[in-house]
Amino acid sequence: MLGINDPGVILGYLLAVVGLIACVVYGALNWNKGMETSTEEIQRDLDWEEKDEHLKEEI
């Protein structure tokens, strides 16, 4: 195939291309999914920052 005869190398290229396609297809299909940052998560982020500030002041 394309000037390469060894099945081991052909399989390697095929796997690399399959991996690439999987990444592209998955990324494209889920481009806008997974944005569910919960209010709890945001609150924890705020607490985190507050703790950070507090620590800095103490030091």
Partner: peptide, 14 residues
């Protein structure tokens, strides 16, 4: 969020 990871899969794979 996971959305950023989903997008990063596409970019990272390429």
């Amino acid at each position: 969020s996971n959305r950023e990871l989903n997008r990063a899969v596409l970019i990272g794979g390429i």
